[in-house]
Design a protein around this nucleic acid. Structure first.
Lengths: 145, 145
DNA sequence: ATCATTGCAAAGGCTTTGCATCCCT
DNA sequence: AGGGATGCAAAGCCTTTGCAATGAT
């Protein structure tokens, strides 16, 4: 993740913002973290090794990640804002397990194309979209018998 | 909307709940209302003619509508829970104007089929989905020049 | 009479902000 | 030294709930 770290640092410099140990720590945790952590997820995770980092700092730092483009905020309807690293594919949507919350990313150009078509049909200019499929993942299917 | 009114009344009776003037008024307002009102939308709308109806009552009544199947709650990511009447098509998704908030419903069996396919590919059992396309509607395109 | 309903106000849950202090540059 | 950053606590927002009073059956 060399690149993202650099992107973030460059962003800070360029905006006249400061590089701090908290920001470095949060960035590191975010990049190592499993997918789509909420502010709280990261905060709790960090608290173990860095009990002095406040919730507000995590919150504000994630916002910075979002601003500089290395992360994007997502709302999966579970009442928490989640952040995902934007390394991956250009665009993707999510398949979410309703039982365990596992998140799988997917992308399908056919769906993307159909969305364009639908927007056009209604005279809309397409700006963005949100697409989540909720289901039960293989593991939870087993557990459920 | 004869039907829905009846469905709601039957539900109340059958559940041992009571029919009250507030519930009738809220149902009427909901059915007449433009699409996808939030609790607040309805509350404010009602307040003009029925300043004595409380927010909590609107909130609880919409929940009842949802329970008996005449309405469904939706989360479009604008921080408010919205409710839509479930008369219409079996299933549909939404095209939303980012400028004025206008909501157009759409449905596309091709997208539905692709979702099934994607879930299957990942070993998931599909339970539900959420799909919103955000764009700029014809009117707002004009306004924007 | 009985028990659900109502309206108000207060409590929750998450996000956001104010502010004195701290720390990069 | 100067101004952004931090951490705490408090404020905002919307949703949800407690409770005494009210109303439907």
């Amino acid at each position: 993740m060399r690149e993202k770290t650099q992107i973030f640092r460059d962003y800070l410099t360029q905006q006249g913002l400061k590089s701090t140990s908290q920001r470095e720590i949060i960035l590191d945790a975010f990049l190592r973290c499993g997918s789509h952590p909420s502010t709280e997820d990261l905060y709790l995770k960090l608290r173990k090794k860095h009990p002095n980092i406040g919730y507000a700092t995590v919150y504000r730092t994630l916002k910075l990640f979002s601003e500089c483009g290395i992360a994007a905020s997502r709302d999966f309807g579970d009442g928490q804002t989640r952040y995902e690293s934007t390394t991956d594919a250009e665009h993707h949507d999510h398949l979410i397990c309703k039982d365990c919350g596992a998140i799988v990313e997917f992308e399908d150009p056919r769906i993307e194309a159909l969305q364009e078509e639908i927007a056009r049909q209604h005279g809309f200019i397409l700006l963005s979209h949100r697409h989540e499929i909720f289901g039960r993942c293989p593991l939870c299917q087993e557990k459920a018998g």
